Computed example of a mutant assay.
Amino acid sequence: MPRDDTVPMITRDNSEEGHLSQNCDDTHTRRTAGEKPLEEGKQYHIFLSYSSSDRHYVLSLKKHLEDLGLKCMMSDNDFTPGWPIMQNIESFMKICQKILFVVSTNFLEKTYCDMEVNMAHAYAADHHMNDYMIVLLRNDCELPLKLKYKTYIDGISTELNDIANKVEDAFIRQDVMPPNTQHDVMENIRSGQVILTKNPEQQLSRLCCNPSYQFNDLTEIELNKLKSSSIEVGIVM
């Protein structure tokens, strides 16, 4: 993977070392705990998604999260060499309980970061998880439509240990959305909101993880509504 492109970050298991941060100069209260239990079939608590340009910041945050018992995943360490990047992303999302997006100006410029956001929305929709994604705003930048609907953690003027505590609070929150058994609601998997209700003519084969639907009777207003919500719309002539 190119070093200047996005990298969802992940981390190796340091739980057997039982380490706590050696830097105790923080004036803020710091929580410490043993490693939290993992759900069945999961190997990590959090998939860290970030731009490689923010790597040092994320490594420091990872250390704070590990001190709280949250096992994080870094692509630098854990992605399988030789696999396509998309396959690595999809495979590791399946074994992480949640994903944390460290959004920055650098993050918004990276192609792979955008792919991870799209794939995370698809995974959350497929598994009926409203709380799968956690958003951390690293610096003063505009959140994309795909993430703007989420209540984010403000990391601009907040100490790392306080950010880690907020990530822990978001991690332990449970919010499961009811499954759609009617198959007649088209959801905007990029923003998590229902934009319109239509009966599709058919569901097409999945492209990269995102479901595709064919509609034969969309009006111009409905098309514009989809496009304004950052949904890719293809016109078949």
Rank of each mutant, 00 (worst) to 15 (best):
residue 86 M to R: 10
residue 76 D to V: 00
residue 71 K to M: 03
residue 84 P to I: 02
residue 110 K to W: 02
residue 148 K to Y: 06
residue 69 G to C: 05
residue 86 M to A: 03
residue 168 E to Q: 14
residue 126 D to I: 10
residue 69 G to P: 07
residue 53 S to P: 01
residue 103 V to Q: 03
residue 117 V to L: 02
residue 100 L to I: 00
residue 166 K to N: 11
residue 172 I to E: 12
residue 162 D to R: 14
residue 62 K to L: 00
residue 156 I to R: 14
residue 164 A to E: 02
residue 170 A to D: 10
residue 178 P to C: 03
residue 110 K to E: 14
residue 87 Q to A: 07
residue 130 N to Q: 08
residue 121 H to V: 08
residue 65 L to S: 00
residue 86 M to L: 07
residue 72 C to D: 08
residue 116 E to L: 03
residue 154 D to L: 01
residue 122 A to Y: 11
residue 87 Q to N: 04
residue 132 Y to S: 09
residue 158 T to Q: 12
residue 68 L to A: 04
residue 127 H to E: 11
residue 152 Y to V: 00
residue 176 V to E: 05
residue 104 S to F: 05
residue 154 D to C: 04
residue 57 Y to Q: 07
residue 159 E to H: 13
residue 166 K to F: 10
residue 145 L to F: 06
residue 154 D to T: 05
residue 81 P to C: 10
residue 47 F to H: 07
residue 106 N to W: 02
residue 154 D to E: 14
residue 52 S to R: 04
residue 57 Y to F: 15
residue 108 L to W: 11
residue 53 S to R: 01
residue 156 I to D: 11
residue 147 L to K: 01
residue 128 H to V: 12
residue 47 F to W: 06
residue 59 L to E: 15
residue 76 D to E: 11
residue 94 K to L: 03
residue 172 I to T: 14
residue 105 T to S: 15
residue 66 E to A: 01
residue 107 F to P: 11
residue 60 S to R: 15
residue 116 E to D: 14
residue 49 S to I: 00
residue 113 C to M: 01
residue 141 C to Y: 06
residue 90 E to D: 13
residue 179 P to D: 06
residue 64 H to F: 13
residue 80 T to F: 01
residue 53 S to D: 03
residue 91 S to R: 15
residue 105 T to F: 07
residue 165 N to D: 13
residue 118 N to F: 04
residue 127 H to S: 11
residue 94 K to M: 06
residue 95 I to M: 12
residue 127 H to W: 14
residue 144 P to S: 05
residue 83 W to P: 00
residue 98 K to W: 13
residue 84 P to L: 01
residue 154 D to V: 00
residue 93 M to E: 14
residue 92 F to I: 02
residue 162 D to M: 09
residue 48 L to R: 08
residue 119 M to H: 07
residue 144 P to D: 06
residue 132 Y to P: 14
residue 55 R to G: 07
residue 125 A to T: 12
residue 56 H to P: 07
residue 125 A to V: 12
residue 122 A to K: 03
residue 177 M to R: 13
residue 160 L to W: 09
residue 86 M to Q: 10
residue 121 H to K: 04
residue 62 K to A: 06
residue 114 D to P: 04
residue 59 L to N: 15
residue 93 M to R: 15
residue 139 N to C: 11
residue 173 R to A: 04
residue 60 S to H: 14
residue 68 L to M: 13
